[in-house]
Design a protein around this nucleic acid. Structure first.
Lengths: 224, 224
DNA sequence: GTATTTTTCGAACGAACGTTCGACTCGAAT
DNA sequence: ATTCGAGTCGAACGTTCGTTCGAAAAATAC
């Protein structure tokens, strides 16, 4: 047996990933309700009934996509946050991580942002829970900033959810041909937010933070 | 004839409004693709075929809803802006107008925010055009602020679209039982944005603007 | 080689979809 | 009294939907 299939377990997993990748694209293009299993069959090359060997329902398929994306974002974020204590820096890392994932996986994010309400209660709850955990991370960073006196009087829930609004809206307008790349975009959003909630007097000014192994990016340039 | 139906023209218009109202609710609850004409028939009490006397297709129905909502927002905004010259004040009015409409007509706004890509090209273009006009209004206010030197170096397109992100995301999280009412919420969002893009040194500080005939609201209170 | 398990799929299920059509009602105009 | 057009609807059109099932094929174990 010189050729194919070294081992079933690996192959089955690989095929599931293949299906998830193409299903993500189809959902992002036509929406969850607008996309049919037949569309996904066509896109993956797997027969209609063959798909059901890998997931038991269309809902479960959406659930698998969403959970996978969230876990990826959270895992990467936790790795990047390790060892960083300053809450502003931590929030900047969260924004960079979010926006970077967004622009690197636009289809996943489109599905994540739009198709949440179609999950029903076994799945819905689990996705809601992981989303809540993500929000609470940002909220904790913000509360630490407040405790350190670096934030003016502002409703913290509204502030943090507005930050998510800025970040999550990006998929509606970002055009790679004219808009800044992830790192620069993240810096701009973080600057607007942090300055927007900052205590006027105590301000240490904007302080972009480099993450990963890249050099610090140039500061935001006015364009257009 | 003491009772009903003074005139057909009026009645037909009233019935169309009745249909649009209930269709908006159905779309906002189940999504455009998830809602069936039969759902709308059930919700309005009008028979399946009877509906088609008032609109020629499901698409057209969505189009009517979206156009109506946009025109309402724009009309109200233009009335409120009349006579106000200061660009910060104008932007604050835009935010208040937007958020107020949002919270007063949550279903319309949900449909507006989510179901844009389902329109096809006769309708799509027209809705996109009115949306562009709305964006350009905000963009022009922002550019005036820049010209007056009150904005730091920041990509204006990114800044303005981030403001829309904050505003448009509200429908995903706003809970009337725990979150601020429209006017207060609008003030917080406008503060975050205006401080977020403000020139550090030239700051005249936050200056909430009362609109309509209400007294100026108290400043944002930290909660939670 | 045979037995067993894992993977694949064609064909079909009943249900629901958007839309159409012809017939009906009924008040207004003649 | 009749004509007319606006408004209404039951029934049905053809299509597509998510899902199932039994059998074939491929891979693995014996």
């Amino acid at each position: 047996m010189p050729k194919t299939a070294p081992n079933n377990h690996h192959d089955a997993q690989a095929k599931l990933r293949h299906i998830l990748r193409h299903a993500t694209r189809v959902f992002s293009e036509k929406g969850y309700e607008g996309a049919s299993i037949r569309d996904i069959s066509r896109a993956t090359g797997v027969s209609l009934s063959g798909l059901y060997y890998y997931f038991e329902s269309k809902q479960k398929l959406l659930y698998l996509i969403q959970i996978h994306a969230f876990k990826s974002i959270l895992k990467r974020l936790e790795r990047r946050l390790a060892g960083v204590a300053n809450p502003e820096e931590r929030l900047r890392i969260l924004v960079t991580n979010h926006v970077e994932y967004f622009l690197r996986h636009p289809m996943e994010m489109k599905v994540l942002a739009r198709e949440e309400e179609f999950l029903e209660d076994p799945y819905r709850r689990e996705v809601a829970e992981i989303k809540r955990r993500y929000y609470e991370m940002a909220r904790r960073m913000f509360d630490e900033m407040r405790r350190a006196g670096r934030v003016r009087r502002v409703n913290p829930r509204v502030a943090v959810l507005s930050l998510f609004g800025m970040m999550n809206w990006v998929y509606k307008w970002h055009n790679p041909r004219v808009d800044p790349r992830a790192e620069h975009l993240a810096e701009t959003l973080a600057n607007i937010f942090l300055e927007g909630v900052a205590n006027g007097h105590a301000g240490r000014g904007l302080r972009p933070v480099a993450i990963g192994r890249r050099a610090p990016s140039e500061s935001a340039r006015a364009a257009g």
